[in-house]
């Protein structure tokens, strides 16, 4: 069986943090526990006046890829609720094929508890 991963096209992550709360709602975790967390890169001024400013969603070791939801035929909660619709999930081989289509600032995570 393939490894199932999560893909983030964070070029378009607007930093809303819906994924954090959606994840917590789904798993019933208290405040202070994250299955996914949005971390900021920048804003920082770089060579030539370029302002680097990204929001980067990162799954934690608690991410179970919404095993129960997926078993019931739903998509993971973070992917459903993402306001910019930048989260995809599936076998990492398939996700890797999406990288050139989606372009720069795309990452794939293989969560610790992958299915």
């Amino acid at each position: 069986m393939s490894n199932i991963g999560l893909l983030f096209n964070y070029e378009w992550c607007s930093g809303c943090q819906s994924c954090e709360i959606a994840c917590r709602n789904e798993h019933g975790w208290p405040l202070g526990t994250w299955g996914i967390k949005v971390e900021d890169l920048g804003p920082m001024e770089m060579e030539g006046g370029v302002m680097e400013f990204d929001h980067v969603p990162i799954p934690t070791s608690f991410c179970d890829l919404c095993e129960d939801r997926v078993a019931a035929g739903n998509v993971p909660s973070c992917a459903l609720h993402c306001l910019s619709n930048i989260i995809e999930w599936g076998p990492v081989e398939e996700l890797a094929k999406r990288l050139p289509e989606l372009g720069p600032k795309t990452t794939i995570f293989l969560p610790k508890n992958n299915l």
Partner: peptide, 18 residues
């Protein structure tokens, strides 16, 4: 939860509704 059948928001929700 967000409603995936809503043609505009398609299941997406912000933290306030969540």
């Amino acid at each position: 939860e967000g409603d995936p059948d809503h043609q505009l928001t398609q299941g997406r929700l912000c933290p306030r509704c969540l």
